[in-house]
Simulated assay, not measured.
Amino acid sequence: MNDRSLDRPWMLIAEREITTKLRDKTFIGSTVVMLFIVMVAVILPAVLAGRGGADKIAVVDDAGAKVVQQASTTKGGDGFEVVRAADRPAAEQLVTDGDAKVALLPDADGYIVLGKDRVDSGLEGALREAASAVGMEKNAAGAGLTPTELRAGTNVQLELLKPGPLPDIVSDFVNIGLALVFYMTALGFGMMIAQSVVQEKESRVVEILAAAVPIRSLLWGKVLGNTVLALSQIVVIAAASLIGLLATDQADILEVVAPVAGWFVVFFVLGFVALAGLWAVAGSLATRQEDLGSTTLPGQMILMIPFFFSVFAGSSAKTVASFIPIASSMAMPGRMLTEDVPLWQPLLAIVILLAGTVLIVRLGARLYERTLLQTGRRLGYREALAIKAT
């Protein structure tokens, strides 16, 4: 124990929390479960994208159908399926509704591959080669053509109806994944914090600690130690996600996810710190492990309701939730992945979350000081608020 630790007793408590958790099988098990869930969320979209039989390609004329048939024979596997459309608007509708992967439309100098938010590079390449082969075959029927004339009408351009950074299915999975990481991490660590506090109360260890260390230092140490552990867990999960993206040839997703990941860390830390204080209070209100079911219920609700909002609610509800403390930690990063969010919105959400975190932590510290040494029976939140400070 060095002099700096004596001057800052909360550092001793934080170190104690970290070393204890690293030896805890529950903590290790929760980390493994989180890794599994995130890896599934990363790999499953790539697996789903590669299933479902032949890709459907909308065309408006026989020439386009011939190009698709040529591409299908050279692609191998399931190939491509031709879907007839009356005109370009009808073809666009098929692509928008998901009834066709892309549309192959005639253009002045060849064809246009029309996609919704992105076009698979393999599909585009197959159509490009097929258009070139069919066009040259047609042009070769003439005599005395130059190379430029021979390749006339074989140029393929790419257009997108709704240009976006990620395919819809990938955006949905990543959105759910970010919200789920915060939810499970905050819930898992929160229950461990509450259990740790009540165990110390049951064993009377807290009385020894409180005699040597200010009660607020006990709280700050627990919050700091568990925040460090939670961030470390997030780093491990992020590394596993990176490996999964590279292994499934989804490296292009990193260009979109990486900037949002930085925002997610900020929202995560602020939201987690606020919740960590509340979880510690939930433990201080209890006198036995059996009491945690009722004392931790408010914390579970604070997490569960915003989680379902951030994942299943409509666009307007998500926008509102992204400015509400705690809920913004799950809603705002997801919106930044799936929408064009102005810079002022996440900045404002962080300011609001920071103010909310300060208020929640101050309230939690006050309740923690008043209830930590209360033994004999479980206390309610209203009763704890009514206790006078000593």
Rank of each mutant, 00 (worst) to 15 (best):
S241I: 10
M191N: 10
F36Y: 07
Q250V: 14
V206L: 10
W263K: 05
I326Y: 06
K388Y: 08
S241E: 05
D168L: 10
R118Q: 15
R370V: 07
E129L: 07
A126I: 06
V358S: 01
L297E: 03
E149T: 00
T74K: 11
D87Y: 02
V228H: 10
A240I: 14
I28S: 04
S232N: 03
A238W: 15
D291F: 01
A46W: 13
E81K: 08
A86I: 10
L275S: 14
R128K: 00
N139M: 01
K222Q: 10
A258Q: 15
P298I: 00
F36Q: 05
A313N: 04
K138P: 02
V156K: 06
P167H: 03
D172K: 00
L242Y: 09
L373C: 06
L242G: 03
A14K: 02
P333F: 13
I324E: 03
I253E: 14
V311L: 12
A282Y: 09
E383I: 02
I352G: 12
M330W: 05
S232T: 02
R4C: 07
L246F: 15
G299F: 11
A186S: 08
M11F: 15
L347C: 03
S284Y: 14
L231T: 02
R204Y: 11
P346W: 12
L187A: 14
L166I: 08
I28N: 06
A103I: 07
A389F: 15
G364Q: 12
Q300F: 05
V32M: 09
A276M: 08
E17A: 10
Y381C: 11
L337R: 00
M332E: 11
P342E: 15
T287C: 02
L229Q: 08
G334E: 06
P325F: 09
K75A: 06
G64V: 09
A349H: 05
L44Q: 05
R23C: 00
V170S: 01
E129S: 13
R51I: 15
A100F: 02
L363Y: 11
I302Q: 01
V206N: 07
M332Q: 04
A282I: 09
G153C: 12
V60T: 14
L254V: 10
D55S: 13
G271F: 14
A355E: 08
A238F: 15
F267M: 08
